[in-house]
Design a protein around this nucleic acid. Structure first.
Length: 484
RNA sequence: GGCCGAUUGGUCAAGCGGUCAAGACGCCGCCCUCUCACGGCGGAAACAACGGUUCGAUUCCGUUAUCGGCUACCA
């Protein structure tokens, strides 16, 4: 039994959205699950679409995701180079294309763009008419010698059918008459994706070809190339598409589609990887939270779904929250610190305490500012916030309570949570108020928020006596002013 | 237009001829409670439609519909 070898073969065109990531991930998981080899190959045969720095993005994203290549541009395993433009310069593709020409499975084509254009039907679809297939040998040689531009096309018979097998979609058969004589070598001397892909996958010993299902319908063509060479066809694993909430193909416009975008939005790489893995596959034990190692252990590509999946950022948020809650408190503190400093600048509060408040309450790091911003400054709020039916309180009653409680608090020396709570509870009992009738106004006064992490007394402790009292005085003034 | 593929709650997703059709996110309610969150409990919510095959179809086969992909000297 040969060792499993998979590859991730992106084009460096800039983005690395979660669809690409998932393809890379599945490819990686298949290899690792079987103890096989995973490699990276850069498919840059379209010189026009190159984007500066795109290879770096790919490398960075794989590193963040924890996907480690055994072979690739930065790590030669002996069958490189792993960048197709370099392989092209080495003449690899041309050599194999010429072999096909000699065998009669491919041919030179000198047709101009104009002629090709004229072949198009009224609705804009074209199908090559094999015009150059019948060119006399001498004419071909003459044109070649004269340096006329040419392409090399695969010669697909018009009769019969071609069948190929995909692990996910099963057997797919098409009429050969449907298969165009696809171009193997372009006039700029570069191979097309279709050709380079087949040649490299074979030369590099790829056993499982994992790719997006946009290649599904062109796959029969690939088999024709494998057959022409007499090469063994790899196992195909076509992955279903990932779409946005409007069922449209994931794009840059979706805003949250690239891995690095998501990280900037405060998502943890582990959570993104975990969530992405679940788009199109799920484990038999139904356990959704999985580390990369667990994914490797449980992944079974034969159970990949056929239907496209919608990328639901809401569920990703939940999962990210799960990862945040599972984090070691120290690690969380480290990760959250930059966000905490931004949300609460200066020394208004102890960041360790704030981190503790945040850890069970946020889903992404971006939530921190909304959650804790009031520690820096009480936001503008409407005094209707003092009304709460369950607490049985109103703005009017709140004003009264705050006025009477202020002197009590001023006298209090111990501003720690527990003693504060006992003291206020006792004071309320003495005054004949319910707990909520004293806690609600205080919490509102010092936070200006309808909900806060931690209770009233905890906020007082964190803010400290001086700041707390200042905030309560300001609240009293606000209430007096607005109640008239 | 042609070819190929897909179709279980709003979303992800079990199921692979006989189930009161799992589970998760989200939503709603309850509990916990000095407001939240976390946690616990419960609820609403689905087999695209129509024909077959079968004692019996979500499951098998057709047709239609919808969505998607390919139909490039793009990948």
């Amino acid at each position: 039994m040969t060792m499993v070898k998979t590859r991730f073969a992106p084009s460096p065109t800039g983005r690395m959205h979660v669809g690409n990531l998932r393809t890379a991930l599945y490819s990686y998981l298949i290899a690792r699950h079987e103890g096989g080899c995973f490699m990276l190959r850069i498919e840059d045969t379209d010189q026009e679409r190159q984007v500066e720095g795109a290879v770096d993005i790919i490398n960075r994203t794989l590193a963040y995701a924890g996907i480690v290549c055994d072979e690739g541009p930065d790590k030669d395993g002996g069958v490189g180079p792993y960048v197709q433009s370099e392989r092209c310069k080495a003449g690899i593709y041309m050599k194999y294309a010429k072999q096909l020409v000699e065998q009669g499975d491919a041919y030179y084509c000198f047709c101009t763009k104009e002629r090709l254009e004229s072949l198009k039907t009224a609705d804009g679809y074209s199908f090559y008419d094999k015009h150059c297939l019948s060119l006399p040998k001498e004419e071909i040689e003459a044109k070649l010698a004269a340096g006329e531009p040419y392409v090399i096309r695969l010669n697909v018979p018009r009769e019969g059918t071609t069948t190929f097998h995909d692990e996910i979609y099963g057997e797919i058969t098409v009429e050969n008459a449907e298969l165009d004589d696809m171009i193997l070598i372009k006039s700029d001397g570069f191979p097309t994706y279709n050709f380079a892909n087949v040649v490299d996958d074979h030369l590099m010993g790829i056993t499982h070809v994992v790719r997006g299902n946009e290649y599904l319908s062109s796959s029969p063509k690939y088999n024709r190339i494998y057959d022409a060479f007499g090469w063994e066809v790899p196992v195909y694993v076509h992955c279903p598409l990932i779409t946005d909430e409007k069922h449209a193909k994931l794009s840059k416009r979706s805003g949250h589609s690239s891995f690095e975008d998501l990280m900037e939005l405060g998502f943890l790489p582990e959570a993104i990887v975990n969530y992405t893995a679940l788009l199109g596959w799920n484990p038999v034990d139904n356990e959704e939270i999985m580390s990369l190692d667990e994914l490797i252990r449980k992944f079974d590509y034969t159970k990949i779904n056929k239907s496209p999946a919608v990328f639901d950022i809401g569920k990703l948020r939940w999962m990210n929250g799960e990862y945040i809650r599972k984090m070691d408190p120290d690690a969380f503190f480290e990760a959250a610190l930059p966000y905490l400093k931004e949300a609460v600048p200066g020394d208004k509060a102890d960041y360790r305490v704030l981190a503790e408040l945040a850890q069970s309450r946020i889903e992404t790091f971006m939530d921190i500012s909304e959650l804790l911003g009031f520690f820096a400054e009480v936001p503008d709020y409407d005094i209707s916030m003092y009304a709460h039916k369950k607490m049985k309180t109103t703005p009017e009653l709140s004003l009264e309570v705050l006025r009477e409680t202020l002197p009590f608090l001023e006298e209090l020396a111990d501003f720690s949570n527990d003693s504060l709570f006992e003291a206020l509870k006792g004071f309320a009992a003495e005054k004949g108020w319910k707990n909520g009738q004293i806690m609600w106004p205080i919490r509102t006064a010092v936070s200006g928020k309808e909900t806060t992490p931690g209770g009233a007394t905890q906020l007082l402790e964190i803010l400290g006596k001086e700041e707390s009292l200042a905030r309560i005085r300001a609240a009293i003034a606000k209430l007096e002013n607005e109640l008239g």
